[in-house]
């Protein structure tokens, strides 16, 4: 049996002034697989993340849903949080109840709360079917190609090469230097361009 924890964020008053967060948490507690649901002022804050970590340990959670802002903002944050508490970071989902609920339905509080509940239910349904994922690795060839040997290409090539990596500096012309080497003195110090 899965042990899902749901964490509803107030985002100060951003979410809590529109969505009834207590009600969302209470309802989420009854969703299949959910063994723990709570709300807190700022889930992304240090104490908020600590609250998640503590709940994972004490409630022996194996999956987590955070309902707060857009996953485009804090998904990486919370993936790290659950990982630091020993859960695979991909056994985590977010419900976007700020950008796509509280903020856009500020004048329709009656329907914002049921919508937030629906969004949390979807996230719980999704996290239920999450599997642990491991990042694969790809090797890196430590050799750079610089296309175009004007001032930009020469500078980039020199900086990379000074770090000790091999660089191929390529130009279609018979010489390096690009436009820069055609110039006479350069502003504002009037030093020579070659």
């Amino acid at each position: 049996m899965k042990r899902i924890g749901v964490f509803i964020c107030h985002c100060g008053t951003n979410i809590a002034s529109v969505v009834d967060v207590k009600k969302v948490a209470a309802t989420a507690g009854s969703f299949p697989g959910v063994v723990y649901a709570t709300d807190y002022q700022y889930m992304c804050s240090d104490p908020g993340q600590e609250l998640i970590r503590k709940a994972i340990k004490e409630q022996r959670l194996d999956r987590v849903v955070v309902a707060s802002c857009s996953p485009r903002l804090h998904e990486p944050t919370f993936r790290k949080t659950v990982e630091s508490a020993g859960i695979n970071p991909y056994l985590f989902e977010m419900a976007n109840i700020r950008e796509q609920c509280a903020w856009v339905h500020a004048r329709d509080k009656d329907r914002a709360t049921p919508k937030a509940i629906d969004l949390v239910r979807a996230a719980v349904a999704k996290v239920n079917r999450d599997g642990p994922l491991q990042a694969a690795t790809i090797p890196i060839t430590k050799r750079a190609l610089v296309i175009g040997a004007g001032i930009a290409g020469m500078q980039a090539a020199l900086d990379i090469a000074d770090t000790g990596y091999e660089v191929v500096l390529l130009d279609r012309e018979p010489t390096i230097g690009g436009n820069m080497v055609k110039l006479d003195k350069t502003f504002p110090t009037l030093d020579c361009s070659a």
């Binding site: 040997a149 090539a157 020199l158 990379i160 090469a161 000074d162 000790g164 990596y165 091999e166 660089v167 191929v168 500096l169 390529l170 130009d171 279609r172 012309e173 018979p174 010489t175 390096i176």
Partner: peptide
């Protein structure tokens, strides 16, 4: 530079 190989007249 010992780490830079030039390839001019190349595309």
């Amino acid at each position: 530079h010992p780490h830079i190989k030039l390839m001019t007249y190349a595309e």
